[in-house]
């Protein structure tokens, strides 16, 4: 059974593309067959985050317009078995495709036998957003614990539900336990209370994300990355495992506990 999941946020720069890349890689590590679709036409980035920018021949618009077959446009990630990327077109704009075409594309991807099809949604609530969500069965909303991002997430949740994508789940990104402890950052509970939505996972703010993006190698593959660990947990939750939020995510802890935990693993 295959499932199309759109990853969206409303606000730009909160980590949609990073999340898509990491979840995709994480699924592949769990032995799933995954297609990542970059729906941000004109501003493609999933290819560089994945480190596959040099292998693009055809893109999503080429497939939709019939310039190539779907299989030709899908880039196989040689590092991870079962991981494929369908890049966005860079020289076109959001109006190059329609919601109906996107729906058809998702159907074709399902027929290819992918377990998960992840769609990286562009920022905003205009045509690009409407295209990206049109073929989705489920939605994941990414936000950071800031007023602007949470406000936009609320708007997006409303729009998703208006388009019958009910009960989206939330990934709270870039949480800083030290700031939460000081009372200078909203907690997981604060954000879920405001948005009235179920939490799928929490990703701590982590330098390893910047480093891994620099290299084009998603952090989910790094054993010692905190954010990578959080993404691994999220993929396991999506496939149906019961994985509790990391204690680091739930409540910030002192340096002593952190060290203890490090050695107990």
């Amino acid at each position: 059974m295959s499932e199309v999941i759109v990853i969206t946020s409303g606000k730009g720069g909160v980590g949609k593309t990073t999340t898509t890349a990491n979840l995709g890689c994480g699924f592949a590590l769990l032995g799933k067959k995954v297609a990542l679709v970059d729906a941000d036409i004109g501003l493609r980035n999933l290819d560089v985050v994945m480190g596959l920018e040099n292998r693009i021949v055809y893109d999503l618009v080429d497939v939709v317009e019939g310039n190539c077959r779907l299989k030709q446009a899908l880039i196989k990630d040689k590092r991870y078995e079962g991981l494929f990327l369908l890049p966005a077109a860079q020289t076109r704009d959001k109006d190059a495709i329609t919601p109906e075409q996107m729906k058809k594309l998702c159907e074709s991807l399902k027929e290819e036998g992918f377990d998960y099809i992840l769609i990286d949604c562009p920022a905003g609530i205009e045509q690009g957003f409407k295209n990206a969500i049109s073929g989705a069965d489920k939605a994941i909303v990414v936000t950071t614990p800031e007023v602007s991002a949470v406000r936009d997430a609320d708007r997006i949740i409303g729009l998703l539900e208006a388009n019958s994508l009910n009960n989206p789940t939330l990934i709270l990104n870039r949480l800083r336990p030290d700031m939460v402890k000081r009372g200078d950052m909203m907690t997981i509970d604060d954000v879920t209370e405001i948005l009235a939505i179920d939490i799928l996972g929490v990703v701590p703010d982590d330098e390893s994300i910047v480093i891994s993006t620099n290299k084009g190698e998603p952090a989910v593959t790094l054993e010692n990355s905190k954010a990578g660990h959080a993404y691994r947990n999220i993929t396991r939750r999506i496939i149906g495992e019961d994985v509790p939020l990391m204690s680091l995510e739930q409540e910030p802890e002192g340096i002593v506990e952190k060290f203890k935990k490090l050695f107990h693993r």
């Binding site: 007023v147 406000r151 939460v180 000081r182 009372g183 200078d184 909203m186 907690t187 604060d190 405001i194």
Partner: peptide, 22 residues
């Protein structure tokens, strides 16, 4: 930890109000 004036509480209160209107 300054329960009342912690900046996260200010953020939360402001958000709640703005979202009601949104």
């Amino acid at each position: 930890g300054n329960e009342g004036t912690a900046s996260k509480n200010v953020a939360k209160d402001r958000l709640k109000l703005v979202l009601v209107h949104d």
